[in-house]
Amino acid sequence: MKRILGLTSIRSDYDLMSGVYRALHNDPAVDLRLLVSGAHLSPQFGRTVDLIVADGFALLGDVESLISGDSKSSRLKTAANLLNGAIDLVRAYAPDLMIFAGDREDVLVAATIGAFLDIPTVHFFGGDHAADGHVDNPVRHATSKLSTAHFVSIDEHRRRLLSLGESDRRIVVIGSVALDKFASEPPLSKEAVLQDMQAKPHAAEHPLAVLIFHPVDQERARAPSFVRDAVNAMVERGYHVMVGAPNPDPGNNDLVEALRELGQLDQVTYYGNTSRANFVNLMRHASLMIGNSSAGLLEAASVRLPVINIGERQRGRTCGANVLFCDGDRTAIELALDTVRGEAFTAILSGLINPYGDGRSASKAAELLKSTDFRALIKKTEDPIHACQ
């Protein structure tokens, strides 16, 4: 039996990988365990470890790593706590393989543990890149350099890893495993979803807009005004706005305060966190997604949902024609809203295909994770000088 350890620290990376985890969990030839840390264990961020337990996955353990200090140093301290708390758990389990996804500090920790404990690792979603200058970009690339192998979404990401000196034999273009949930989650009615999410009365009578806005250091002072202007502009146009919680990065305190304040409006529901089934069906029933979440760029095209990305976060990333980028001032947001509601933009959505895949990647990934001899790849002897020649 192959022992595979998944590491997850936040709702977003768990949601990305849940289809892979399910396929591995259902395979009798695999012993899958999850090591849970970070925001998953924090009541402030919804204690989303409960969703993992409800999904039936076996936990190797949990590490209470999150320093919710709303400062730049808090992310470093969180990473240090995870490194210190996870080493002995991983060493004792002695997995045949570790898997992790994305670009947060916890994946850098995971890749470091694998490298130093001589455990093969597979990094999902490597090779992506945004032009926003956020620290997540170099963290993603550094994680890739420490990882044994890479399951990437599109060929552009493969080419970027090649340019970083990674060998082509380590890279598999698998499509985005985050999209499988749109094929696997059963449909729920708009009314049932809103009731379960405790939406405001009469929300179902309005077109729905999903707002998710994460803090970005260079926009920290302006973020509350961004979301206030966005919500007010949408309410004026008749939307009921469903507001998700931001991630725990520096700047989230002021942002959460603004979002909770907006949640007092009759036309706004602050739901914070919700189940995967609810979120998938909310996207199916929504008329708009707005904010700066990666779900807008990577996933919304699967349900032909128009997206307005506000501010600097996510700029430069590959996305479908359903995504419109705008600045954070009220005038820019109103212009973007009027554009996505127009006939020309609506016509674009009718033939939209998600550039990140067709929703059939998780089972492929799980089979490769089970059958590939990653131990044979663990020694990274390639010289980056010659990698692109």
Score class of each variant (00 low, 15 high):
56 G>W: 08
56 G>E: 13
56 G>D: 12
56 G>I: 12
57 F>G: 01
59 L>N: 13
60 L>C: 13
60 L>W: 13
60 L>R: 08
61 G>P: 01
61 G>W: 04
61 G>S: 11
61 G>D: 12
61 G>F: 02
62 D>C: 07
62 D>L: 02
62 D>Q: 13
62 D>V: 10
63 V>H: 00
63 V>W: 01
64 E>D: 07
64 E>K: 02
65 S>F: 11
65 S>H: 12
65 S>M: 10
65 S>T: 12
65 S>D: 10
65 S>L: 10
66 L>A: 07
67 I>N: 11
67 I>E: 11
67 I>G: 04
67 I>T: 12
68 S>F: 13
68 S>I: 09
68 S>Q: 12
68 S>D: 15
70 D>S: 09
70 D>Y: 06
72 K>D: 15
72 K>Q: 15
72 K>L: 15
73 S>P: 04
73 S>Q: 14
74 S>Q: 13
75 R>T: 15
75 R>P: 01
76 L>R: 05
76 L>N: 08
76 L>I: 15
77 K>F: 03
77 K>N: 08
77 K>M: 10
78 T>S: 15
78 T>Q: 06
78 T>E: 08
79 A>H: 05
79 A>G: 15
80 A>C: 13
80 A>G: 14
80 A>M: 12
80 A>L: 12
80 A>W: 06
80 A>R: 07
81 N>R: 14
81 N>H: 14
81 N>P: 04
82 L>I: 09
83 L>N: 08
84 N>S: 12
85 G>F: 02
86 A>C: 06
87 I>S: 01
87 I>L: 14
88 D>S: 14
88 D>A: 12
89 L>G: 08
90 V>I: 13
90 V>R: 00
90 V>T: 05
90 V>D: 00
91 R>W: 03
92 A>C: 07
92 A>H: 10
93 Y>D: 08
93 Y>Q: 04
93 Y>H: 02
93 Y>N: 02
93 Y>I: 00
94 A>P: 01
94 A>H: 05
94 A>W: 00
94 A>T: 06
95 P>Q: 03
95 P>G: 06
96 D>H: 03
97 L>D: 00
97 L>T: 03
97 L>S: 03
98 M>F: 00
98 M>K: 00
98 M>D: 00
99 I>M: 01
99 I>D: 04
100 F>C: 05
100 F>H: 09
100 F>M: 07
100 F>R: 00
101 A>E: 12
102 G>N: 10
102 G>I: 06
103 D>P: 01
103 D>A: 01
104 R>K: 07
104 R>Q: 11
105 E>P: 01
105 E>K: 02
105 E>D: 14
105 E>N: 07
106 D>V: 07
106 D>K: 00
106 D>A: 09
107 V>C: 05
107 V>G: 02
107 V>M: 08
107 V>H: 05
107 V>L: 09
107 V>W: 06
108 L>Y: 13
108 L>F: 15
109 V>I: 08
110 A>C: 06
112 T>N: 10
112 T>A: 11
113 I>N: 02
113 I>F: 05
113 I>Q: 00
113 I>T: 00
114 G>E: 07
115 A>L: 14
115 A>R: 07
116 F>H: 14
116 F>V: 14
116 F>P: 11
117 L>G: 07
117 L>I: 14
118 D>G: 13
118 D>Y: 11
